[in-house]
Amino acid sequence: MNKVLFFAHLREAVGKDYIEIDAAGKTVAQLKEELQKQYDLPRFESVMTAINEEFCQETDVIREGDEIAFIPPVSGG
């Protein structure tokens, strides 16, 4: 299983902090496409992805147990 985390406007769109799904073997791009179909995720194309707390590429493949987080453009400071 994989924990998929949502923040900021994505968290509000999904209505949850995280979901648990089986995404092993999928690329980040494939997972994003699936989630986009399932939820209406505004501005999802400008969102970065982190696997296990490191920024990753859309082509990276998700492994069993990986924690995935979608990172909207940040606005700290």
């Binding site: 501005r43 970065m48 992805t49 982190a50 990753c56 940040v74 606005s75 700290g76 400071g77």
Partner: peptide
């Protein structure tokens, strides 16, 4: 990964980034 949500007199919005919108094509 820190985000701020502005609460104005006339609405709310998550702020994308300091320059409004910077897309990250490379992910």
């Amino acid at each position: 990964p820190i985000w701020k949500k502005e609460h104005w007199e006339d609405g709310t919005e998550w702020i994308g980034d300091q320059l409004e919108q910077v897309p990250y094509p490379s992910g």
